[in-house]
Amino acid sequence: MLELDDVGFGYEPGAWVFRHLSLTVPSGSITAVLGPNGRGKTTLVRCAAGLLKPREGVVTHDGPIGFVPQARGGAFAYRAVDMVLMGRVRQVGLFASPGRDDRVAAIDAMERTGVGHLRDRQFPTLSGGEQQLVLIARALASDCPMLVLDEPSTGLDLHNQAQILSLLRKLVADGMGVLLTTHHPDQALFLADSVLLMGGPDDVRTGPAAELLTDAELSRLYAIDVHTLTYEQNGNERRAIVTRYGDELD
């Protein structure tokens, strides 16, 4: 469980990125943060993960948070399994190196995210999707009950995006709580129990995904005409969100 209570943050005094923001992410649920570029999505998840100290309000969580940053190459070419092992910092003593238990946890986490076969590959030589899965494995290896992910599907092809979404669904089914940012409203619709729409410091809304992700709200949020299509998949009614390009200059 992760709870933000009346949290406010700004990089400069007086200039708030967001304020009076309250949010609860229970275990076994997903909350997606949506909004245009530069409105504070990443700032919010960094506050939630404890990397930024909020100017106001409190962030509470039970157990450590596994933070999954956007995948970048990094300065040194560690093997994938060594990257995942680094998730064990909290478990390994100050002057110690990871032992057998830590290696088992790391390999187990890689199997869970489906990258066990990439163990000995060098991290920077992996594809973007594979890197993202390794970073999620690293967070899992830390035995955290809560994942915070910054745009986990950005920069990935359709198959890799689908793979990340399925993995997150599986983790949540096992009791994990997830907070993530995304630029894909349809993925939020597919994944999330609740959503947070960040339009600006005074324009933050939270609510159930199905209620908040409407044509009107999304059109307003992104300042572009957004349209929901309904279709059937395995007897279930699904919704897809499409943009109508070409009208945005009017």
Binding site: R46, A49, G50, L51, P64, I65, F67, P69, G74, A75, F76, M86, G87, V89, R90, R138, S142
Partner: peptide, 13 residues
Amino acid sequence: VLSLGDEEAESLG
């Protein structure tokens, strides 16, 4: 862990 950068190192504890 330190060589990953401050933010990642901190997020790992």
